Amino acid sequence: MKHSEYRRLMTDEFGSAYAAVLGNSHVLQVLGNRTADEALADGVKPRDVWVAICDDLQIPEERRLGRDIPIKERRDV
Rank of each mutant, 00 (worst) to 15 (best):
M1R: 01
K2P: 03
H3T: 08
H3W: 15
E5G: 05
E5T: 15
Y6D: 04
R7Q: 15
R8P: 05
R8I: 06
R8C: 03
M10Q: 03
M10C: 06
M10D: 02
T11D: 12
D12L: 02
D12K: 10
D12H: 13
D12S: 02
F14N: 04
F14R: 03
G15A: 07
S16T: 13
S16M: 11
A17D: 14
A17K: 12
Y18I: 09
A20P: 00
V21D: 14
V21A: 13
V21F: 14
G23A: 11
N24W: 05
N24C: 14
S25C: 08
S25E: 13
H26V: 13
V27W: 11
V27Y: 06
V27R: 11
L28I: 14
L28H: 11
Q29M: 10
Q29S: 15
V30I: 07
G32E: 02
G32N: 06
G32C: 03
N33R: 12
N33P: 06
N33E: 08
N33A: 10
R34Y: 00
T35Y: 04
T35A: 05
A36S: 14
E38N: 03
E38S: 14
E38D: 11
E38A: 11
E38R: 10
E38K: 13
A39Q: 03
A39L: 03
L40Y: 10
L40Q: 02
A41F: 08
A41P: 04
G43C: 06
V44A: 09
V44P: 07
V44T: 14
K45Q: 12
K45Y: 15
P46S: 09
P46Q: 08
R47G: 13
D48I: 03
W50S: 00
W50N: 00
W50P: 00
V51Y: 07
A52R: 05
I53H: 05
D55G: 04
D55E: 09
L57Q: 12
Q58S: 12
I59Y: 00
P60F: 08
P60S: 12
P60E: 08
E61G: 00
E62I: 06
E62L: 03
R63Q: 09
R63I: 04
R63T: 01
R64H: 08
L65V: 12
G66Q: 05
G66S: 00
D68C: 11
D68I: 14
I69T: 10
I69W: 02
P70V: 11
I71F: 14
I71G: 00
I71N: 02
E73N: 04
R74D: 00
R75Q: 12
V77E: 15
